[in-house]
């Protein structure tokens, strides 16, 4: 049933501000339905007089149901909640089904963040996020929101958070969003402080065992290289491991292009390793990752230029 306000006594004091398109016909104009058009007219009117009231919450809810991508309405609703000191728990209860209906909407997540910040507790959020990720396990907004939660409520060292992240990686070892979240927990919370040795070892072992499951999966390779760089270890630390998947003496037997890529970096740092590094890059360009031949050749060029690794 469409909702109208013009004969609603509760709104009789408001003169709606209709959309004024003036002389020329605007570009990309929408022939609004009467219901939407009228509701927006009332919203413009209450915004013009800075009204924050219960009826404004009802009005914004109505408009959001017709257009959830309307940032103006979300921002004004958020301001109204704060001015009214309205129940934020009620807001979350209303928000949950709305978010499930509109998975890729920016506004809902920012709004949620504002509300949870006000509630000052992440309780229930993990269950909600799980429901959202069941629909789309790589949803950017959901993962970014999870990172905000971790930071806001200091969950970097929370065992449950780490266990959940491991479950996500276990469910799909190629889910790069989950790998990024692990990095966020392990390194992101340290504010540049050195990683303890046991953590470095634990993370390297974790990434290595993931690579063994599917050596052509780039996510754990990036993670592994990142940990080595973060720990300021020489890249040669990974030489034996890389050789498990790519031995240059058996160029027809390569199990991961990423191992070759890493070996090229390792050889480039070795004394007299340039020729081997070149060979690895040539193998990538000609056979194991030919779509990126230009890039591998660029890396080869760097070897000649400097003597320093790419």
């Amino acid at each position: 049933m469409p909702i109208f306000y013009h004969d609603d006594p509760e709104w009789s004091d408001i003169e709606p501000l209709p959309q004024d398109d003036g002389g020329l016909h605007p570009l990309a104009a929408i022939a609004y339905a009467d219901e939407y058009s009228e509701a927006m007219g009332y919203l413009r009117a209450v915004m013009a007089k800075n009204e924050f009231s219960q009826r404004v919450l009802g009005l914004t809810e109505h408009i959001i149901s017709m257009n959830p991508a309307h940032y103006t309405v979300w921002l004004y609703r958020s301001r109204t909640l704060s001015e009214l000191k309205a129940s934020l728990h009620d807001e979350i209860a209303w928000l949950n089904p709305t978010a499930l209906k509109h998975l890729k909407n920016y506004q809902i997540w920012h709004h949620r963040q504002t509300i949870i910040d006000g509630i000052n507790s992440p309780k229930g959020e993990h269950e909600f996020i799980a429901t959202m990720l069941e629909q789309d396990s790589k949803n950017y907004h959901v993962w970014s929101y999870r990172q905000w939660l971790v930071k806001r409520f200091g969950l970097f060292d929370d065992k449950e958070e780490m266990r959940w992240t491991e479950d996500m990686i276990h469910a799909d070892v190629r889910n790069n969003s989950a790998w990024n979240h692990r990095w966020f927990l392990v390194v992101g919370g340290r504010d540049g402080k050195t990683l303890p040795e046991n953590v470095v070892k634990r993370e390297m072992d974790y990434a290595k065992s993931a690579i063994r499951k599917a050596p052509q999966n780039q996510s754990p390779w990036n993670y592994l290289k990142g940990i080595v760089r973060e720990a300021k270890l020489p890249v040669s630390t990974l030489k034996d491991f890389a050789l498990e998947f790519a031995d240059m003496r058996r160029p027809d037997d390569i199990y991961s292009s990423h191992a070759l890529d890493l070996l090229a970096d390792i050889y480039a740092e070795e004394e007299n390793g340039k020729e081997e590094a070149k060979k690895a890059l040539e193998l990538l360009a000609s056979k194991y990752d030919p779509i990126r031949a230009h890039y591998w050749n660029f890396r080869k060029g760097l070897l000649d230029q400097s003597g320093v690794a790419a």
Binding site: L27, A28, I30, A31, Y36, N67, A69, H70
Partner: peptide, 24 residues
């Protein structure tokens, strides 16, 4: 056509009309 009129079902684009103009 993207610069032209949209029927009422496109209210979801109401906040993105500047984009439609730019992209087109």
């Amino acid at each position: 056509q993207a610069l032209g009129d949209y029927p009422s079902g496109f209210a979801l684009l109401d906040a993105s009309r500047p984009w439609l103009v730019y992209w087109s």
